[in-house]
Design a protein around this nucleic acid. Sequence first.
DNA 1: AATGAATGAGGTTTCATTCAT
DNA 2: TATGAATGAAACCTCATTCAT
Lengths: 209, 209, 209, 209
Amino acid sequence: MGIVERRKREKDLRREIAMDAAMAIYNEEGYHAITMEKIAERCEISRASLYLYFKNKDEILINAIVDHTEYFTDILQDLYENREQLRDNLLQELWARFIDFYEKEPETFNASLYFQNSEMILNLPENLRDNIDESGSKVVSLQHKIIEYGVKAGMFIDCNPMTLSEVIWTSFLGIVQLERSKQVLSRKGHYESTRDLALEVLSRGIVKK
Amino acid sequence: MGIVERRKREKDLRREIAMDAAMAIYNEEGYHAITMEKIAERCEISRASLYLYFKNKDEILINAIVDHTEYFTDILQDLYENREQLRDNLLQELWARFIDFYEKEPETFNASLYFQNSEMILNLPENLRDNIDESGSKVVSLQHKIIEYGVKAGMFIDCNPMTLSEVIWTSFLGIVQLERSKQVLSRKGHYESTRDLALEVLSRGIVKK
Amino acid sequence: MGIVERRKREKDLRREIAMDAAMAIYNEEGYHAITMEKIAERCEISRASLYLYFKNKDEILINAIVDHTEYFTDILQDLYENREQLRDNLLQELWARFIDFYEKEPETFNASLYFQNSEMILNLPENLRDNIDESGSKVVSLQHKIIEYGVKAGMFIDCNPMTLSEVIWTSFLGIVQLERSKQVLSRKGHYESTRDLALEVLSRGIVKK
Amino acid sequence: MGIVERRKREKDLRREIAMDAAMAIYNEEGYHAITMEKIAERCEISRASLYLYFKNKDEILINAIVDHTEYFTDILQDLYENREQLRDNLLQELWARFIDFYEKEPETFNASLYFQNSEMILNLPENLRDNIDESGSKVVSLQHKIIEYGVKAGMFIDCNPMTLSEVIWTSFLGIVQLERSKQVLSRKGHYESTRDLALEVLSRGIVKK
DNA sequence: AATGAATGAGGTTTCATTCAT
DNA sequence: TATGAATGAAACCTCATTCAT
């Protein structure tokens, strides 16, 4: 009863490794530097073998994103489920989850942002696009529900919860993007302080005391 | 003094056209669809001739970014010079300039941001990277000065002006990025409402009454 | 004496199945769509296992041809053995056997002809080529003997029997080829009438009354 | 008025050379041995340059066929136009044109036959398929008209002219195919005698005295 | 100055075959 | 015996850039 299972596990592991390799290359050299050759090299697998695990190059990247986004979904889901115990810390907690995700896997975060914005998506086969879309939608919808709860509960200012959730999320998004920008240009960033001040400003602007 | 000058003018014009072409292609088909072939076609110039105006492909893109950023610098500079007359509307005015820049040429705005963050830059020779860097720095520095004025004048909460200016800018940046994301996935966006609510939140969070 | 024999029988069966699969694929998707992968799939055998039965891909195809040609040899042999009873119908009967072979398995007929003419053979190791050659030779030789009998018996016009047998055979060959051509281009064919008129013409041209 | 024209001439010449190279390779090593690499090598042109002359590999082959088939069309057309002066030699003349075409460019003839039958056509883009189809149709239609004339003029037996023209053409087709078969297997052929006897038989079977 | 032509370098993907289990 | 996994070799095609005119 072991062999089939072990094979499956090994295969999954290899897939994981390949996806990580792709991400790493993305982070070091950018999207269009990702080649099957380089991925193969890092995995110490032959180029041809990669095609045993993925139908084509795109699939590696897409799967990497979708997979890693799941972690994000999970921590948001967790927050949503515990919303009642949080009392006045809903915003802080949400922000903390953003930070958690970003700091745990900055490459993934960056890559996700990149892919979701990039034209790459335009040239994707329908089904892969749907994968990404769906995975993104889950995140959006969770954020929405969390904020909606805050608004209804009277913690937040009275406004359209969807819009508000976008304001919060984009606030974080922009910070990360700027940070990335700086990295690319090898300037030093102030990510932490910007991030903290942003939260402070948001609190003041959003939370009813 | 006529002929030489005319030649120069014509050359500059050609450069302009080529850069616009590159931007247009980016917007219609995405970054990696920008080929010398396509640029040439749009310019009604031969591919080889492009090399008379630019040393290589990168130069076209870099210059396009730098050029278009100049408009942004200008309107920020203008704001800075008139800071005194604005009284309590400094934040609103700054925000309005962001919107102005973005709405005037959303494609350019997108493209600039994209290029600045993209791996393109990673693979750039030092000197070209510096060009971009410098052009970006001007914008940053202007924003900084504007916000610093606001803080010192007691209009804004008491905090590091550089950090605050980043908070404001990234707030806008994130909104634009989300909007772009949605376009790519052909979902409908709420850019205006998000943008307005963001300003409201920022005002509450930043402006002392 | 049971087990060894059964093993052999099973092996032969597997070989047969594989060759049929190859032919079927040829017919449905064309020569260069024949891949070990697809053959294996149809056989419900693993790709690697095919190499237990055949030394390589070519061997599958060659054997397929040779095998199927055997049926043709058989019905020609049968005709030859009964040549005396046929009296004036020798040509008609020969023609009928051609038709029989073709109509029994048109795909196989096509495939065999195709393979025999195709470049596949050019790139074949000596020994495999000989296999094909030998199998073809038998057919040729039988036709030759049949026609020779007809000429000697005074049924057919006086001429080199080998040449005459080629005239008859190629006449049929051409018809089949044209038919195939039409199928490929999805034009409708008139195989039956062409075939019948050809026989009529041949009769008039060959048979002494 | 010189330079553009010369360029065009040179380009056409290069195309011609490439097509010939492809044909030659086909003849020596078979269809699927035709690679861009080999063609390039023979032309003493870089692989990439071939793409200046042809959109893709298929186009080289298709154009080669279509081009060369034109010669066939021409000599059949010529025959048709002079049908009245030929009196009783219509069949002989037609046959002679077949021989002419085949002997002038046996490779082309073979290649045409191959391509028209092969699955390659199935995988062809619509427009290329049409090219081939059209070029083939012209030949068919000319033969038909020639034979129809013979039947109506009472030279040939009374029968469906289309069918008859197929009988004659396939008769030749088969002979060529057999010859090819033999070449492939490096057996010696009797093409000339078969061909001549076939004509004799056809004459007897078809022509009214 | 302007451009058609040429090409090297590189990217993705397929497939027959081998190997370890 | 049977097979999942691995891979080298090769094919097609694209594109930035150079060169000759």
